[in-house]
């Protein structure tokens, strides 16, 4: 564990990415406090409409005179929360599903994996739109819809880990000691497969942020008054020609946070598997 952190700290992009991720999470937490920012959220003096970036409004204002910086900070609340919660929910579903398939093996395994294959063959957008109709297109609806299309990868990953680990000697030893199935799964198999699962989760967060913003952008996700980076970009799209700053800033926040999560995922993966970073002599020479 300690070695892992030492290796991680040596990957400069990962450390930088981690800092950015922490900053964005902090931004998200701050947005829940709503205290100091509400003051200039709504600029009632209506001459502040559609201002370009200026000292009072670093990111300009929108067509209702609302300060874009404030809106972007508020947007982080939904965007980041949806991203992180989607990853957590799909992690739980995928891990339980994959653990059952991998541990039981045999017929149960092939049945469960066929179901995953079939779930993969349905278009994601079809599933998400129809789920949106069933559970409503609020924050919760989007969250459930995103989680339900992103658990499949985790399930496959956990299953593969379990299949590989299950025949290891320490599992056999645990079984010989008379430990039950549940205990073997939770005490021995899960802790040993947690690494790749965490890496997969780090990649699910940016994927969910991207999906949410894209859905909201095309009008199938959140819609105003809900405010996420996606809905802000969607608003900005309409005035691309005249006021490009309205789409520029929310897009930048989406880009930077997704980029940071992706770099962090890369770093975690490399730190977990040092082999992928070793430089062979031949490789160096080429």
């Amino acid at each position: 564990m300690k070695r892992f952190f030492i290796r991680l700290s040596k990957i400069r992009t990962a450390v930088a990415a981690l800092l950015v991720v922490l900053l964005i999470c902090l931004l998200c937490v701050v947005s829940y406090l709503d205290l100091p920012l509400t003051g200039f959220a709504f600029d009632e003096t209506s001459d502040a409409i559609l201002l370009d970036p200026c000292p009072q409004h670093p990111m300009g204002t929108d067509e209702l005179g609302r300060d874009l910086l404030t809106r972007v900070i508020y947007g982080s609340r939904l965007s980041i929360t949806i991203g992180v919660l989607t990853a957590l929910v799909s992690l739980v579903i995928g891990t339980v599903y994959g653990a059952i398939a991998g541990y039981c093996g045999g017929k149960i395994d092939s049945l469960l994996m066929r179901i995953v294959d079939i779930a993969y063959s349905l278009p994601d957008l079809l599933v998400m739109i129809l789920l949106g109709v069933l559970i409503g297109r609020g924050t919760l609806g989007i969250l459930i819809a995103l989680a339900l299309v992103s658990w499949r990868g985790t399930a496959r990953l956990v299953r593969a880990q379990f299949l590989a680990l299950k025949s290891e000697e320490f599992v056999e030893a645990a079984r010989a000691q008379g430990q039950g199935h549940l205990k073997i799964i939770t005490r021995h198999l899960l802790p040993n497969s947690i690494g790749p699962v965490i890496v997969a989760m780090t990649f699910t967060v940016p994927a969910a942020i991207l999906s949410e913003s894209t859905l909201s952008f095309i009008g199938l996700g959140l819609s105003p008054p809900a405010c996420s980076w996606g809905t802000l970009a969607s608003d900005g799209w309409r005035s691309l020609q005249t006021h490009p700053h309205l789409i520029l800033f929310p897009s930048m926040f989406i880009f930077v946070s997704v980029l940071a999560f992706n770099f962090l995922g890369d770093g975690l993966r490399d730190a977990l598997d040092p082999r992928t970073r070793s430089i062979s002599k031949v490789g160096k020479e080429l």
């Binding site: 913003s213 970009a233 799209w237 880009f255 997704v258 890369d266």
Partner: peptide, 13 residues
């Protein structure tokens, strides 16, 4: 990495 981090609509815009 930047390429997989940009939403399609941002590239388009």
């Amino acid at each position: 990495t930047a390429g997989i981090s940009v939403p399609v609509f941002v590239i388009g815009a």
